[in-house]
């Protein structure tokens, strides 16, 4: 079970928000990039043949001699893109488990609010850059989403860039992306530029405590879990100092790249209560209400 029953009960009273206008398939409760049929006046435009006569503003026509039609705001469902990194680098400590729980939490928030949830995991099976499921729109889909997330074994290298490009090509909808990854891999940070185009969102940067402050000693030959590359390291105090500086720089680079693309970024230590901490942080930055 990804999420405990009492935690899910709390999530049912919350909803995910987007700081941008969205474009969904169905009507919903989020401000849309389209004009629609709501009661909220949005703008005027010149009449063109085929417009509904009932929207012509006769007062302005009489006063100005120009035929204008009234436009109103539209509200769409929130299309949530949920991207989970399941590369081999996530198979350290509790990173993958924490990522699964965070994805479950975000997915449940969307389903509970009647939003459209599109789950992705990278890499995909059988050499594909990513896997996805059809969009889910109701809480009745939660068991299927939970099972899909739970049976997400670690594999290969993450292909966040390919996933982002795919999403960018789906122009029919526009909504926030939630990327859950450690970003340990070549070019993963660059993929955030593409995710920014998709519709913003939030980056959950998951790192294990041992990665933030490793407990190692002696002379080591370190092997990259994804690429198999090796590096020799002598763990002197100076080395450890430099490593910690590199970690700080890495975390800051992920965060700054996210901000530059209009996304929020949350650093998540892979600990048992990470989902509670993240929920509190999302509430603080008003992505969850």
């Amino acid at each position: 079970m990804l999420l405990e029953a009492d935690f899910r009960a709390r999530l049912e009273r919350m909803a995910l928000r987007s700081h941008r206008r969205v474009r969904g398939v169905w009507a919903g409760g989020h401000a849309s990039t389209q004009r629609g049929e709501s009661l909220d006046f949005a703008d005027y435009r010149e009449y063109t043949p085929g417009d509904d006569f009932r929207r012509i503003d006769h007062t302005l026509w009489a006063r100005l001699g120009v035929v204008l039609v009234r436009l109103f705001e539209a509200e769409d469902e929130l299309p949530i893109r949920l991207v989970v990194d399941r590369s081999l680098s996530m198979d350290f400590g509790d990173k993958l488990r924490v990522a699964q729980r965070l994805a479950g939490m975000i997915g449940f928030l969307g389903l509970a609010a009647g939003d459209r949830v599109l789950p992705f995991r990278t890499p995909g099976d059988r050499g594909a850059p990513f896997d996805s499921r059809p969009a889910l729109r109701h809480l009745s889909s939660w068991p299927a989403l939970e099972e899909w997330l739970e049976v997400t074994p670690p594999a290969g290298e993450a292909h966040l860039a390919a996933t982002a490009r795919y999403l960018a090509g789906q122009g029919a909808t526009k909504g926030p992306a939630v990327i859950i990854s450690d970003f340990l891999g070549e070019g993963l940070i660059d993929s955030l530029d593409t995710f920014g185009v998709v519709g913003g969102g939030v980056v959950l940067h998951v790192l294990a405590p041992d990665e933030l402050d490793p407990v190692v000693s002696g002379d080591l030959r370190l092997v990259d879990a994804e690429t198999g590359q090796e590096v020799n390291v002598s763990t002197t105090p100076e080395t450890m100092k430099q490593y910690r500086a590199a970690v700080d720089g890495f975390v800051e680079s992920v965060a700054s790249r996210a901000r530059r693309n209009g996304m929020d970024c949350v650093l998540v230590p892979a600990v048992a209560e990470a989902h509670e901490l993240v929920l509190a942080e999302l509430s603080r930055i008003q992505l969850v209400r």
């Binding site: 680098s89 092997v223 990259d224 490593y243 970690v247």
Partner: peptide
């Protein structure tokens, strides 16, 4: 040197102590 598998060597390479 003892062999040790890590999530990524990117950060260790940045430490510059190989």
């Amino acid at each position: 040197r003892s062999r040790m598998v890590v999530p990524s060597i990117i950060l260790w390479e940045q430490a510059g102590t190989s």
